[in-house]
Computed example of a mutant assay.
Amino acid sequence: MRIDCPDRTGGTSGSPWVTDLDPTTRTGAVVGVIGGYREGGDTADTSSSSYSGDRVRVPYQRASGGG
């Protein structure tokens, strides 16, 4: 997954990549973690992430007591 964010070149590394955001509850599904320049993008204004589906979600939920 990749997003161009020229106005946000600093501070995005480690942020969650969220889909299905509900603006009322401010909850959604985390599907990845954004990497920074050189670790997650070709330029400083591009952020990217590997998709982390059920292979990551299920073990995380079990480890955190969420099911």
Score class of each variant (00 low, 15 high):
G67C: 06
D54M: 06
G35D: 05
W17Y: 13
R38Y: 05
R2K: 13
R57A: 13
V18S: 11
R57G: 03
D22T: 12
D7M: 11
E39P: 06
D22V: 08
G40P: 03
G11D: 04
G65W: 04
E39W: 13
A29L: 15
R62C: 04
S50Q: 12
R38G: 00
R38T: 14
R2Y: 12
T25W: 03
Q61K: 14
P59S: 10
V18I: 15
T24Y: 08
L21F: 13
W17T: 11
V56A: 11
T25Y: 02
G35R: 03
P23G: 11
R8A: 15
D54P: 00
S49P: 07
S47H: 06
V33P: 02
D45H: 07
T12P: 05
D54C: 06
R62Y: 01
T12R: 07
T46H: 10
S49G: 09
S50E: 11
V58M: 07
D42W: 10
D45S: 10
M1A: 13
G53A: 08
V56Q: 00
G28V: 05
Y60I: 01
R57M: 08
G40T: 02
Y60W: 11
V56T: 09
I3T: 00
W17D: 09
Y60A: 02
T25A: 09
D54F: 05
G11W: 08
V33N: 04
G36L: 01
G10A: 14
S13M: 04
R8F: 15
D45F: 00
R26T: 04
T46E: 14
R55I: 09
D54N: 13
V30G: 06
G36E: 01
T19C: 14
M1T: 12
R38C: 06
T19P: 00
T43P: 01
P16H: 05
T43D: 06
R8P: 03
S49M: 13
P6A: 06
S47T: 00
D45I: 02
G28I: 05
D7V: 11
A29E: 15
Y51V: 05
V56L: 06
Y60S: 01
T46I: 14
S15Y: 02
G53S: 06
V33I: 15
V30D: 00
P6Q: 07
Y51S: 02
L21K: 12
V18T: 15
D4W: 09
V18Q: 09
T27V: 07
E39N: 14
R26N: 11
G35Y: 05
E39F: 09
S47V: 02
P6S: 07
G36S: 08
V56W: 04
G53M: 01
T12S: 13
G35C: 10
D22P: 08
V30W: 03
G67W: 02
A63M: 10
S13H: 01
D20M: 09
T25R: 08
L21S: 09
G32I: 03
E39Q: 11
R62V: 03
D20P: 06
I34M: 07
T9R: 15
G66K: 04
V30N: 07
G36P: 05
P23F: 12
G28N: 08
G67S: 09
G10K: 14
R38A: 08
C5D: 03
T27H: 13
G35F: 04
R26V: 05
